[in-house]
Design a protein around this nucleic acid. Structure first.
Lengths: 158, 158
DNA sequence: TATAGAGATTCCAGTTACTGGAGAGTCAAG
DNA sequence: CTTGACTCTCCAGTAACTGGAATCTCTATA
């Protein structure tokens, strides 16, 4: 039996009792609005992830509505987390692949994490340099009604 | 006397008809390649800045070549510096406006610098949080040939 | 049952600051 | 006169969405 949940109240009920009943032949679908809410992503973004083949809905309704099952929603949540670390969408695709592959090695995942980490470190070093220099300039600037300004001066000179 | 560099023999005429911005005598023009080299910007970028009205060439040759004078090149260099602090192109437009306006107040410039500074600080705080959390996860990951991985686990859970 | 309103669809455009490339014209040197 | 280096304009693509238009579809209510 296939169930489609499109109503908020009903969806809540289904979601609530989700753990209790994964009875074999029963399947609960969520349309995009519910999937978005459940994964805390904007609808537009969920649709985008489907478009780029990152998380495609398990099915479509007769009317063409995207239908997400619980595993899809898990995937969406996974992506949301990975994206929050600024992994690119492509990296997310790869991470999701690892996630779904129980033959993976944690080595591969760790490698990606370390790579991302060095990128973050690099970015932070750059920002720190900018911050220092800009702070120095701002500090030297009187910030009054006169035109004399070491910030502009520095930009002009360098 | 008007001096023209880089194949721009018609520039004199055009510049003259535009009205003298430099007292009547010597004017040297550079075509986009020279201007790019002088400002250490890619040709494409210089052209782009012209397109978006950030730094428009003082003149055009008969054949339609962009002709930059020294002041233009100063502007390009100014923009390059400002951009290196990650001021947006719009902010650069504003900063350039200040730079070229001797009625400016250093207050306005300083305000922009401080705003940029808080943005940088904000970004650094975010990155620092990411870095810590990701480092924690990576540290906890064995990085071996087994599938068990706290990084994936964390993404799945959160 | 008619209908209003919420929510879904696709497709297109815009965001930022460029960058790459095609096809064509221009210039100086040999 | 040809060659090669430059330059021109215009179009497309980048990353990861986001906004909006025009058009269904579903459901709750009068």
């Amino acid at each position: 039996m296939v169930k489609i949940v499109a109503n908020a109240h009903q969806a809540a009920l289904e979601a609530a009792s989700e753990g209790a009943r994964k009875a074999a032949s029963e399947r609960t679908f969520f349309n995009i609005g519910k999937a978005a809410k459940a994964s805390e992503l904007p609808v537009k973004t969920v649709r985008y992830y489907a478009d780029v083949g990152l998380v495609e809905p398990a099915a479509r309704s007769k009317a063409g509505y995207r239908l997400y099952d619980e595993i899809d929603i898990e995937r969406l949540r996974f992506i949301k987390s990975a994206r929050s670390f600024d992994f690119s969408v492509d990296d997310c695709r790869e991470l999701l692949g690892f996630y779904q592959n129980d033959q993976r090695s944690s080595r591969d995942v760790k490698q990606m994490a370390l790579k991302r980490l060095t990128e973050i470190d690099q970015k932070m070093r750059e920002l720190e340099k900018l911050r220092q220099e800009l702070a120095r300039l701002a500090h030297a600037c009187p910030g009054d009604e006169h035109p004399g300004c070491p910030i502009l001066g520095s930009f002009a000179r360098s």
